[in-house]
């Protein structure tokens, strides 16, 4: 499994209130949530994002509320993968549970710039920066989490 796309770069502590503001939580519709994704931190995100694009951010991505609407909005907006130095733990869980690919890699998070073209190989954990011509190595998922992702999310993995 691979991801390949253009990078949307953000800083530290991107919280779930800017990923999907609470004023839009009166719906659970994925497309509608995606139409407001990142609105309070990057007004142009929705306009610019293309299918397969990648979000890269620094420390503590997804901090704050437990709203699963946040990874849902990101996934439904077409983002194929989020790379960050660290993730807030509820966001990390939620992303795995709904099948949004996420990778922790401090080196990549620091070096990758907005607009870079990046390719991610989930089997090896190798992240290639096509624009800069270099690679970074991310920690692969533990087996337990791989199993959830391979089976298409938590609820599918629970089915006997």
């Amino acid at each position: 499994m691979k991801a390949h796309g253009t990078v949307h770069k953000y800083g530290d502590n991107v919280d779930t209130d800017v990923i999907i503001p609470a004023r839009y939580l009166n719906t659970a519709d994925h497309k509608e949530l995606a139409s407001h994704c990142m609105e309070d931190i990057d007004k142009d995100f929705v306009k610019n994002v293309k299918e397969g694009d990648i979000i890269v951010a620094n420390m503590n991505f997804g901090c704050g509320s437990s709203r699963e609407h946040a990874p849902i909005a990101i996934k439904a907006s077409g983002i194929s993968c989020v790379i960050a130095s660290t993730f807030a733990r509820i966001f990390y869980r939620n992303a795995i549970n709904i099948g949004l690919a996420i990778l922790e890699c401090d080196e990549a998070a620091k070096d990758i710039e907005n607009g870079n073209e990046v390719e991610v190989d989930f089997d090896t954990g190798i992240i290639t920066n096509v624009t800069k011509g270099c690679t970074y190595k991310a920690e692969p998922f533990p087996e337990f989490i791989k199993d959830i992702i391979n089976k298409g999310g938590l609820l599918n993995s629970l089915k006997k």
């Binding site: 709203r67 699963e68 509820i90 869980r93 939620n94 549970n97 938590l154």
Partner: peptide
């Protein structure tokens, strides 16, 4: 399925926030 579920630790419980899929499961 609310991040402030950690509140009940005040009473000596292990209590933590999760997302909606965890709640469903």
């Amino acid at each position: 399925a609310d991040s402030h579920t950690c509140t009940y630790g005040a009473l000596g419980a292990f209590s933590t926030g999760v997302g909606s899929t965890d709640m469903a499961a």
